[in-house]
Design a protein around this nucleic acid. Structure first.
Lengths: 343, 343
DNA sequence: TCCTTCTTTCAAAGCGCTTTGGATAAATTT
DNA sequence: AAATTTATCCAAAGCGCTTTGAAAGAAGGA
């Protein structure tokens, strides 16, 4: 069933039917209802290809797989992506994926996408502290939204959570509880989010007059094993340097920390405090941690949806100012934190 | 730069240029070369939308997020998907994603995809033992390929690994090493792959005259914690029931098994043997397990690529017979297996 | 030389939608 | 009653590609 058939069926022109369906004001409500009913009845779906050709819009958003590809990175990305896809289909858009791996450089992927006009906009994630993709896409005049932030001269559309504030708050809480030797198990600080968390952590400690011991700051990736390794290393320090509190960038890392603490007979919440950032992944709940985990939380799925909404809004109104949306992050205090043990 | 402009530039018709570019035989090699050079020079890329409208093909494959969404499921799917995307772009196809979650049933997703002609074919993964999607897509006349297998009356295109054979072989090895109390930590047996592995396991044991103890067979999901929990449960059994060997469906599960065995002071490879299936995920290598893990291995990334190739071949030649490709699985013996300890 | 067969190229007709620039009928104003 | 506005609807022109059916030119055979 196509437009022409439908319009003949209704004894209307294609124009009117098209306008009725697309909500144009110059068609009466009576005919609009009649048209919609008939369309439903006959299961009419406009051809995406024809619409694309006519409008010059592809109705498609592009997502490039992030370069960060460790286990937790994958999980976060999958949750982000699947939520984005869900919202996308509600809004009548498609998502197509591209990969930069092997011979194909990331730049080539973007250029190709732009030239073949396959996507209306791109969604970027996992930005570096200063990410070259921003300038590239701006030069190519390809609309995009960044999940995260980065250093850039020109404004761009983005959505991020307040990583700095979250870790500032969490580290502040640990200080207030009397902890003086606080460890930070972070992600790779070449990424903006990890750098941001690092800054929040440091500025909280400095603000509270607590020294930052470089030996207690670790950053690589978001896995359980990284958490475990670094904890083991820190517990091997001389007694007066050993941390009494850990701040982790992910629950996976916290699991590693816990594994080593458990092995050393240290009780979480009593001997040692533990806070982690909680992205609300289905299989890693802070509240079912043992003990329940104090956490800075922000659902990454919600970010996936909002990113899609924002970029589609931008496509509909390209001249609206490019906003940098930043979500506050809640700090939920549970049983994994407590006052610093007496020295 | 579009076809008309390019053809005028070359003083040729659009027909000739189109045919030259698409490799039709009725254009001379001389003009083809001339056309290709000019196209390259001016950076001509055919409009995907126009081509789609003209050919009725979308040049796009659809992937529906699998219903199985636990942590390891996500990792496997991501690796499968990203490899598929990579191969896809080499072959000039796109991949778009769809989600069945919340209000949208999976069936609705497929129906919508078919009616709006957005995709030429679909890629299915994580099939159940008897998966209703097969009949649905056949009824909708939507070409598809299944990663895995399922019970179905009619032939369909698929690619799978020999899960049954792999677990038959692995369990057989354990029997041959003298083990008589062998545990199986499996995935959810509602899924075909897990069911297949279960069958391979059972038939190996039966064939070697070894009894299958239902208390030593566990199946839920592919996570570390499931492996750990089940191991703890089995180690709590009376001594004469306690397993001397574990066969796991994933390295993640094996990590959980190892955690509990380590905690009980049992040495892997000496006191207890351990085998797992290895999907060759980047961050979970059987060879860097401690001790190096005996494993049935088959790279899931390679499957992702092959699935894409197969379905595209099928689109090019729709009348060729629908093949069920099954890959053999290697059993690599490393240090985690050894003779059963004396009773 | 004329007729036939390839080879090479082309004009034009879609594919199914959106959108421009009217046209017609009804309502309102003068 | 004529002139103007408003509310509906329409015919037709693209969007950029593929493909059909034909024509022109070159080559070969008689």
């Amino acid at each position: 069933m196509n437009l022409r058939e439908l319009s003949r069926l209704l004894h209307l022109s294609q124009t009117t039917v098209s306008r009725a369906l697309n909500g144009f004001p110059e068609v009466s409500e009576a005919t609009r209802a009649r048209v919609k009913a008939a369309a439903d009845l006959h299961g009419y779906r406009p051809s995406a290809a024809a619409r694309r050709l006519a409008t010059g819009q592809s109705g498609t958003l592009g997502v490039v797989f992030p370069r960060e590809r460790n286990m937790l990175g994958d999980l976060l990305f999958t949750e982000f992506l699947s939520s984005g896809v869900e919202r996308c289909s509600e809004l009548g858009y498609d998502i197509t994926l591209a990969m930069a791996r092997g011979a194909q450089t990331e730049e080539a992927v973007y250029r190709r996408a732009v030239r073949s006009a396959r996507v209306d906009a791109m969604i970027l994630s996992s930005p570096l502290v200063a990410d070259p993709r921003i300038a590239l896409l701006q030069a190519l005049r390809m609309p995009f939204i960044l999940h995260g932030r980065t250093r850039a001269e020109t404004p761009y559309l983005s959505l991020d959570i307040d990583n700095r504030g979250a870790f500032f708050q969490a580290a502040g809480l640990l200080c207030d509880l009397g902890h003086r030797r606080i460890a930070l198990i972070n992600g790779d600080t070449r990424y903006y989010y990890a750098n941001d968390r690092d800054e929040g952590f440091r500025s909280a400690l400095t603000g509270k007059g607590v020294a930052v011991n470089p030996a207690l700051v670790a950053s690589s990736n978001m896995t359980e094993s990284h958490g475990a390794e670094e904890t083991a290393r820190m517990l091997a320090l001389p007694l007066q340097e050993r941390p009494t509190a850990f701040l982790c960038s992910s629950i996976a890392q916290a699991q590693g920390v816990k594994r080593v603490l458990d092995g050393s007979g240290l009780a979480i919440g009593r001997d040692v405090s533990l806070i982690a950032h909680d992205d609300r992944l289905a299989d890693m709940r802070a509240e079912s941690f043992d003990p329940p985990l104090t956490a800075t939380q922000s659902p990454i799925g919600a970010a996936g949806k909002r990113v899609v909404e924002k970029i589609i809004e931008h496509l509909r109104e390209p001249d609206a100012p490019l906003s940098q949306e930043v979500w506050p992050v809640d700090l939920l205090v549970r049983a994994s934190t407590g006052p610093a043990p007496a020295p």
